[in-house]
């Protein structure tokens, strides 16, 4: 895990991007309305539909019980906890485990599980293409 910034640096329900282990990761601080407890979600900053690194600039919201973010580019909605795209079930954002330790946000060095299908993770394709 890598410490990236103080929790206070994150405004609730507004994303920011961080660089972790060469990956662009989008962080979202979400406060549980009942308990007042803070959670930090980390998903890939790469929007799989547009191929641009913009997810941290999406609007946070909810769909039923799920906390979501909508891509700012073409507005597909993703579950922040699992990375699953709600409108296109085959697509999923990689998710990074996070931890809050002594007021600092820590992000794992790699995503929770490798995406099953490499064609769903254009970052691999981009990385391969960028000389």
């Amino acid at each position: 895990m890598t410490p990236v910034c103080p929790l206070d640096r994150l405004v609730p329900e507004r994303g920011v991007a961080v660089l972790v282990g060469g990956h662009q990761v989008a962080l979202f601080r979400v406060t549980d309305p009942a308990t007042g407890e803070d959670r930090v979600h980390a998903v890939s900053h790469l929007d799989p539909f547009s191929g641009a690194h913009v997810m941290a600039r999406g609007i946070v919201g909810s769909s039923g019980e799920r906390v979501t973010v909508a891509s700012p580019m073409y507005k597909q909605v993703f579950d922040l906890a699992t990375g699953a795209c709600l409108t296109e079930p085959d697509v999923r954002l990689p998710v990074w485990p996070t931890r809050i330790l002594e007021g600092l946000v820590h992000v794992a060095d790699r995503p929770a599980e490798q995406p099953v299908d490499p064609s769903l993770d254009p970052s691999a394709a981009l990385a391969a293409a960028t000389p």
Partner: peptide
């Protein structure tokens, strides 16, 4: 303060741009 590329590397440009 919100106009940064990466919170932990505020001056690094998005490396995927070409």
């Amino acid at each position: 303060a919100h106009f940064v590329s990466f919170v932990n590397e505020p001056d690094t440009a998005d490396p995927s741009l070409a």
